[in-house]
Amino acid sequence: MAINLKELSKKPVPLSPGHRACAGCGSIIAIKLVLMAAEEPVVCTCATGCMEVVTTIYPYTAWRVPFMHNAFENSAATMSGIETAYRALRKQGRIDREIRFIAFGGDGGTYDIGLQALSGAMERGHDFLYVCYNNEAYMNTGIQRSGSTPMCAATSTSPVGKESIGKRQYAKDLTKIMVAHGIPYAAQASPHRWMDLMEKVRKALRIRGPKFINVISSCHRGWRVPMHTSLDVCKTAVETCHWPLFEVEDGAWRLNYKPKRKAPITEWFGTQKRFAHLTKPENAKVVEEIQAGVDRRWSELLHLCGEEGG
């Protein structure tokens, strides 16, 4: 079933208004799109982080679907338990409804502290979709660097100073790590291409077994961008190939979007004050290095997707 606006406009919104996310929060847009894409009833978990905090301050909840927050590092492990309980009840004939399961986590809860629980759940083959809302730092605790923070980004714990030009390491490639688990579906997406994101969610939820979608999600506080540009800046991430959109289904790689003009990484840097120091002439060399890294990863991806020379 194709996704169209007319159909969507008739669907109840599983996340209520009145939540406390910042105006212009990329993550809450991403989560809402994910929930809207589901065709069956869903049960969700979320790691400790912005999205848990802004949606559930007691005695209020923005979740119109069953939801559990347990702790920071265990969204996937908690969902393993919920999904297994469902399987047990199905087997015993005590529940007959089709239910789908979606675990959320930010990049801190997914790339770093929750990586073991996520890896374990994927390896065990639980039937749920894990969605990482990736805003490239620990935003909830005050913008500290994470394993997903890009090279040279200034954060609270990787500040720019006389001896520092921001984070000194590249982000780990978590999507590839998930692909290496041999799961039936893994993808990268962006909320600015909402149709692509929702189709990926829909496709993933039709597949039985573990699924993973990594969604770039801007944070205007952490990225230091004007709040009305949250989707524009996600678009720049994709146009510069900082965040390519692709999916891997049963080991087959497919590129979902190829920029007509592959924009230089400086355009991505230029949108955000966390990279402001990279415009200084003395940092030109490191910018070149980062560009070379982006180019290398992009050509590897084109190769994997059978798109070379195109």
Binding site: P41, V43, E52, T56, I57, Y58, Y60, T61, W63, R64, V65, P66, F67, M68, H69, N70, I82, A85, Y86, L89, I95, R97, I99
Partner: peptide, 11 residues
């Protein structure tokens, strides 16, 4: 798993 009576755990 009670889809018709959604609850939030752990707010």
């Amino acid at each position: 798993l009670d889809i018709d009576r959604p609850v939030t755990y752990g707010p």
